[in-house]
Each structure stands twice: as structure tokens, then as C-alpha cells.
Design a protein around this nucleic acid. Sequence first.
RNA 1: GCGCGAGUAGCUCAGUCGGAUAGAGCGCCGGUCUACGAAACCGGAGGUCGCAGGUUCGAAUCCUGCCUCGCGCGCCA
Length: 554
Amino acid sequence: MPDHLTVLRDALARAVTAVCGQPPAAVEIVPPARPEHGDLATPVAMSMAKAAKRNPREIADGVAAALLADPATAGLVAGVEVAGPGFINLRMAPAWFAAVVDDALAAGPRYGAGGTAAPEPVLVEFVSVNPTGPLHVGHARQAALGDSVSRILAFAGDDVSREYYVNDYGRQMELFGESVAARYGQLYGLPTEVPEDGYQGDYVSDVARVMQVEVGDGHRERVSPPDDETLALFARRGGELMLDAILAELEVFRVHFDVVSHETPLHDDGVVAARLDELVAAGHAYEQDGALWFRSSAFGDEKDRVLRRANGATTYLAADVAYHLDKARRMGGRMIDVLGADHHGYIGRLKALVEAGGFDPDHLEVLIVQLVSLLEQGEARKMSKRAGTLVTMADLVRDIGVDAARFFLVERSSDTTLDLDLGLAREKSQENPVYYVQYAHARCCSILRKAADEGVERGDSPPPEALGDDERALIQRLADWPGVVTEAAARRAPHRVVAYLKDLARDFHGFYHRSQVVDAAPAERDLRLGLVEATRGVIACGLDLVAVEAPERM
RNA sequence: GCGCGAGUAGCUCAGUCGGAUAGAGCGCCGGUCUACGAAACCGGAGGUCGCAGGUUCGAAUCCUGCCUCGCGCGCCA
């Protein structure tokens, strides 16, 4: 059951086709620049003018006449006017506004869902940090983006799977193991020291203490000096504990992964070696200077890349060959990787390896998330990994709460650096847009509670003769929702949902101030009760798409 | 040097597969509670859309060049 904006768009497309003899590429319906231009406007006649080699005003006149004669929109369009260079301005009838509200109520929580034209399986991989340390605010932004994109794609109709890829292999894990072992030794007063380039953070001691509980003092004799077997144990178990902590934090952050895949088995089970052999056999890899190179330049990358070093160790890229080709095989659909800005130089390689593996490189999409800087009183908060002043995701959540963190981290387009004002985010009041939106939801609930308390139920009276400006604006905003979802999904842009919610909340607050609901005359009351319920539903739905709670009371 | 991203109001940013007089929040100035929540509403001031050309009925949006900022350019991950 298409929503009424779609009904109108289809009717306009039919009218254009009848007048021009060819269908329009798209029918854009926009709010008019000025209120006296009507309720809705479309520039479709002007965009058709070139293709049809006709005067835009002439087309517009024809479309206007055809639209008025279309039975599908009979009673919904109150007036059509051609203005300016060929804009078609529409004045909608009360029945149209009522129909929009009915659309939303009939669809319930599914209003706006399923708009993706060609749904497909999508695997969204994000966060994927080494289990050697806690998540910081940059990861929090990636988590918020990856999860919100997943929620939006799923709502729009795709079959989404969230995945975390654990780099639990290689030199960094060894260093982590050595660091944990050193801290473990220190618990027994041994002179063990964390390596210079190891992990110095306090959390390493926490991991060591947990391991002390698990393995007891059985290894105290084996960490000073350490033997390989012991280091391997500390690296493996330490990594597991760290990963558990990371995933638990992400659950608190309302991020749940459907699949957690590990790098180590790709090496141990020979998958990496097998993929490298295949690349060689296909002529996509070659030996030079004792190393094995991927001929990625043949697939558009800037230069060739090393897969296996002269010392025999495979690179991170080699594992990614195995991992991404495995993903491509499992999915048979689209892969989205969410990466930090410092990894953007990696995109060419990833696309190249997907193509070399026989898959369409366009099926891999890489979303780059720009940096986050935290502001305190307008001053940038200095963050340095070395100085230990890095703000972790846990710190952020403790400071401003999950709702504010999730909201602020996706409020801006992911390809612009984000300034997060902690003072504002912490503020539980007026200036804070999170509460502004949540408050609108609570107000809707408050009205509905009052109606229930007074035994007032929504009747089925016909729409009022005329609607107020606030009602028209709010209803039109609701009519936009399905389009907003589709757009946010197509562009992988949760910030569109957030921006919409702020607009919707503003329209609602304005309506609220000037319109009585429960105590209004029957015709108005029925429409407004439906409008409040529909608004409440869309706010709750939109907030859920960015994993922010919609409280009934605040 | 090359690549990617950004440059729009005092600040933070929307808007960018071309549409009418470029928007919001914050901040600033002023007004509104005996109504379903004032965590709200209403009004005002505030702009060479980085610069310069080009494309056309029409450019913040597309093209070219330049400037500034961030990030990246390893047989690291």
C-alpha cells in the first residue's frame, strides 16, 4: 500500500507521460519556497522541457489539467497553479492531509519501512579493532555509524548482517601477550617489564589480574624470563578477555554483532596460503626481492602491495584477501566496511583484491569515518595515546550517557570531522537536541495519556473543512518520512534521520502550542489525536534507527 | 609532490544526481505559562555559500584552475 506522497508522485508521472509522450526520470516533490505558493510544488515540467523540446510552462499547463482529471487523486488536490518559469504548485485538500495521517497509523511501526527498490543481503563490518586495548571515541563514532546504517538498511528492506573482524594474529598480539605477561609477573614482585613498544595502559594490569585468577601462580616461574609457550598463552587468553570486554561495552552502546570472525583460523587452517596460491596461479601475484607482491595496480590501485615479506611472514593485507573473499563468497551480496579516516589509503587495495578474486569491486563499499575531537568549554580536549589521555568510549558513555553519545556521533555527516561539545551533550536541558526530540515524544505520550484518562477515543468523523498552518506543516513532515528513510538508506547517511527528527520535533512543538487536541471539537479532535499518535510513532521509529530511547516521560 | 575529505551566519553544521527570496541549532536582543509538560513557543539582528573563470532559462550544487585546513602515502596493523 503506497503512501499518499507516492500516490501523488505516480499521478504526476502519468500526467507528464500523457503530455510529453515519455515518462519523467523522476518526479521531485518539494515544499514551495513561499507559503502562498501552496502546499507542495514540483519542478518536473522544467526538467522535462529539455528532453521533450517543449516550453516548460506549456508542459506545466498540460500536466496541471491532466492531474485534475486523474481519478487516483480525485478529492485530494484542491488546486493546481502554474507559476514562474514552470513550477507546478499544488494546494492539497483536507482529505489529503487526513489520508497521510491514516497512512501512518495503518502502517504503524512499519510506516516508512521497505522503501528500498531492490533489497539485497548486506554485510556491514565495523569497529573490528585489535583486542589489545579499549575502544576510544573514534571507535565509538564508527560503532554508532555502522550500527545506525545497519538499522536503517534493515528498516528499508535489506537483509543486514553485522560483523566484527578480530585481528587476533601477528606482531601486535605478541606484544600484547608480552605486556600482559609482564604485568602478571609484577603481581608476584618479579622484575618483569612491559616492552618499550608494548601496551602501557592500566587495563593491561586488569587483564593480568583476571588471568591470575584463571591460571593461578602456575606461570610465575615462566614469565621471567618468558618462554614462547607462556607468551602464546598470555597473548591468546589476554586477547579473548580484551575482546569480551570490548563486545560487552558495545552491547551497552546498543551494538550487537551477528558474526564475530577471527583472523587466526584463516592462517591456521591454510585459508590465507590457499588464497595467495590462487592469486599466483591467476597471475595476480608475483615474487620480487624475495617477497610476494599483489599486482593491485592492475586493478586500479596506485601501486603493487606486499602480501608476504622476505622473512616469510604474511602482511595484514594477505589476511584481508582471505577474509574479504570469504565474506564475498558467504554473502553473495553487498559488503560495507566502515573504516577510520586514517585507513582511507587502504580502499584501493581492498577493491583490487575483491576484483582479483573474481567479484565485482562495486560490491565492496567503504565508508570512511572522519575524526572526532572533543570540546570542553569550547576548548579542544587534548587526546594522545602515548600520554594516556585518550578518551575511551566507556569514558564518553559514563560522561554523557548512551542516548546523547549515539545521537551526537551520527548527527553530522560521517565524512566531516566531528566536534563533540561535551558540555552541551551533558546538558540535560534546553540546548540539547537529544532532549528536544525526546521531549516531543514524551509530550505526545502525555497527550495520549490524557485522552485515555478522560475516556476520549478517536472517532471517524470526516476531516475538518480547513486545517491550520501548524497541522498542515506537521502532516507534510510526516508525509516526508518514507522518503527520508529511503534517502538515508541509499546514502548510508544516518544524519539525515537525525536532522529529520529535529525538524519533526520542531513542527510538533509548534503545533502543540497552538492546537488543543483532547478538548477540541470532534472533527479537529479526531484528526489531531491521529496526528499525535502518528507523530509519536515516527519519532520513536526514527530514534530507534539511531538507537536512542524514546521515553514516555522525562 | 600525489590521493581522499572538508571550506556555507560569531560558533557547530544541514542543504550538493541544478530549481522560486540559502536553512537549523547554539550564542545575542526582545516577548509568551489559570490549557494536553515553559526540557516548550513567538519575534529580531546576523551571509561576497573559500577565490576566479566556465556550462544554462536557472549554480551553494556540475566543469576547470587556484588557496586554506585535516588525514593518508611502510616488506606496520
